[in-house]
Amino acid sequence: MDFRLDILVEYIPFFLKGTLLTIGLSLVGILIGTVLGLIIGLGKMTRNKLISFICNCYIVFFRGTPLFVQILLIHFGVVPMLIGHTNGIVASIIALSLIAGAYIAEIFRAGIQSIDKGQMEAARSLGMNHVQSMKDVILPQAFKRMIPPLGNEFIVLIKESSLAAIVATPELMYYGRALASQYYRVWEPYLTAALIYLVLTTSLSYLLNRLERRLATE
């Protein structure tokens, strides 16, 4: 197997640009997805049956359908409806945020429900209302337990952002495929892309491990 370094060198600027966009897509997806997940997760736990039902439908739909399908629907259907034309980056961010929100909602719910109910009772018995008790007592404890599954979800999100390439979002995998089709090569573009994804995901899991350890010693 020959390995053509020259074409990789030629593509270095593209891989850099693509990697930056991959990082950007993932970060924005994580941020919006986390906020969305908190809202949907709390919504699913409320006593209001309608809100709970809507949130549950959301989770069922976005967890139950492939991201591939969601990206196509959002890119060719939702985004043109909203802004009048297609836009790969916008569609990718929306799709990644929505699917992350569904998974993170369940992570939040599990985290919150894992806290002993005596904690809520103690807070409420002091006269704190439900929102204050959640904010000061339940969520800080639940958050610590949510870090490992959240980390998992963030890593999945980085990898799944590669699907954005199919709607011509110029991220890492988009340039990988461009290189592959320009030179009819397989190993150079895809191994390089794999390696870059690996660097991104392991860096993230290193950071999360450190965060977890820091919170554990508190």
Partner: peptide, 17 residues
């Protein structure tokens, strides 16, 4: 919530934060 501020409670399992 207002009534509960007047009524303290101590639990079997302590329930400290």
């Amino acid at each position: 919530n207002k009534v509960r501020t007047e009524v303290g409670m101590v639990f079997q399992q302590f329930n400290l934060f």
